[in-house]
């Protein structure tokens, strides 16, 4: 069974068809790239998958079960997690707290424990647990020295990394990265590629990557999907995409 499958997925805003008839299948441990010119509907697609928008037609299946109509936080529980094109960290919270928020849906202690922090109760165990897991996760991303920094004080590259770490903290099966290289210089982009490789080696997760930076997408993705005006115009390996006339047309204009 495919990890993610969409069937005839589409959304219309007023009279505008932002995404239409979108069909894609992603299996376990895949790295798929999604490219397309500005305004092609890439981020809209992410918003459809994560429950921010309700599709006007079609279906989204995660491990065979429809997630359409679920609230975004419920879709996170199903194993989808994402980052944002424009970084959206909790800026006035510490780096560690940013990651801890993402563990939220895995914690189960109740009101009595929240109010009184009963000694020896689940509260202490779960809080200690996510503290440890959060620090380990940040250490993997070489941010162990930043745990107590405010997120807003991190340099740009590290903010991007923290956003990815935060998304991974929800323990997703599919990670959606929305233009992670946006605003990065070539050096930072190179580091990002290494980070993505690192994630694939160390986490059991598939990745769907939206990207503008062609070298990044071509360099690391096994499969690429190209969309324009909300519909898929090409699918294939990086080699095939490079030669595809429609893709060249969409990017350079005809």
């Amino acid at each position: 069974m495919a990890l993610l499958e969409t069937k005839g997925l589409g959304i219309t805003f007023g009279g505008l068809r932002a995404v239409g008839d979108f069909e894609i299948t992603i299996g376990d441990h895949e790295l798929v790239g999604l490219i397309g010119p500005n305004g092609a509907g890439k981020t809209t697609l992410f918003n459809l998958l994560t429950g921010v928008y309700l599709p006007t037609d079609g279906d989204v299946l995660v491990e065979g079960k429809s997630v359409v109509g679920l609230k975004p936080y419920q879709i996170v529980e199903k194993g989808l997690s994402r980052t944002f094109q424009n970084i959206r960290l909790f800026k006035d919270m510490t780096v560690l707290d940013n990651v801890k928020v993402a563990f939220h849906h895995k914690m189960s202690y109740g009101t009595a424990n929240t109010l009184f922090r009963i000694p020896g109760s689940k509260y202490w165990k779960e809080e200690a647990d996510i503290d440890k897991k959060g620090r380990e996760l940040l250490a993997l991303f070489k941010m162990e020295d930043n745990v107590n920094d405010m997120a807003k004080n991190l340099p740009y590259g590290k903010q991007r990394k923290l956003e990815i770490a935060r998304a991974l903290a929800t323990e997703p099966k599919l990670l959606l990265l929305d233009e992670p290289a946006a605003g990065m210089n070539p050096q930072e982009t190179k580091e990002l590629m290494e980070t993505i490789h690192f994630i694939r080696e160390n986490f059991d997760v598939s990745i769907l990557l939206i990207e503008h930076d062609m070298s990044l997408v071509m360099g690391i993705c096994e499969r690429i999907i190209v969309i324009d005006y909300g519909v898929i115009i090409a699918k294939g390996t990086p080699e095939e995409i490079k030669k595809n006339e429609k893709v060249i047309g969409a990017y350079l204009g005809q």
Binding site: Y73, D92, D97, H104
Partner: peptide, 26 residues
């Protein structure tokens, strides 16, 4: 400062959408 509810509150007050996409019931 120290509980999941409090962290969720701080997260929601900063960015509702990002919070719900990180699994917080807004």
């Amino acid at each position: 400062r120290k509980t999941k509810v409090g962290r969720a509150m701080r997260a929601v007050s900063e960015d509702k959408q990002a919070a719900q996409l990180m699994g917080v019931n807004v």
